[in-house]
């Protein structure tokens, strides 16, 4: 475990990345007892435009609030992958949605068909952001699964608890391989 993680969740508007960032930050700061700062940027479009949520999760108070080179990059669109894949640390990980993105294989690059898994295994495409959170937790440990589940359940519409839990838990069942 590192003392400080710079995390970039990137993709298109409508994929739930800001929500994922809020859940992750709340899990880390309110339930895991760490320090977290989340910032975001998006274009004027509500859907389809480039979108990212950025977090710094640290054992101590965070001054400068924005990531420079990421320890963890999540890329859910081709545009996001192309734009941010080079701003990752040497020992950082890239989690790329292999059902949507053409990527270069390499050390630390983990292709996972996140959106396809949300459709096939969860039965609901819009849970891809939650599947991604489960994957990040299982692969990196930056935020605990228990904390993520608590934060997730407090932010979702009533009646969607079971499907969201299922989406989050998917990450625990996957095997992670890089350089493939």
């Amino acid at each position: 475990m590192k003392n400080l993680y710079e995390v970039r969740l990137s993709g298109s508007g409508g994929q739930g990345l800001i929500t994922a960032g809020m859940i992750m930050g709340e899990a880390a700061s309110v339930f895991d007892g760490k320090f977290a700062v989340q910032t975001q940027s998006y274009g004027p479009e509500a859907r389809g435009g480039a979108c990212k949520a950025e977090l710094i999760i640290s054992e101590k108070e965070v001054a400068y609030p924005k990531p420079v080179d990421a320890d963890i990059l999540l890329a859910l669109s081709q545009q996001a992958y192309d734009q941010y894949k080079d701003d990752v640390k040497e020992d950082g990980v890239i989690i790329v949605d292999s059902s949507l993105v053409k990527y270069e294989k390499g050390k630390g690059v983990y292709p996972i068909p996140i959106t396809q898994l949300a459709i096939d295994k969860v039965g609901l495409k819009v849970t891809a952001n939650v599947v991604a959170l489960g994957v990040i937790s299982s692969l990196t440990g930056v935020v605990s699964y228990e904390a993520l589940e608590r934060a997730l359940l407090s932010r979702i519409p009533p009646g969607t608890e079971e499907i969201n839990k299922k989406a989050l838990a998917l990450g625990k069942t996957l095997e992670f391989k890089d350089n493939i």
Binding site: G21, M22, G25, S29, V30, F35, A36, V37, Q38, T39, Q40, P65
Partner: peptide
């Protein structure tokens, strides 16, 4: 703007 939209505990 940064502070207004930034999330922290």
């Amino acid at each position: 703007e940064t502070l207004g939209h930034m999330r922290e505990k």
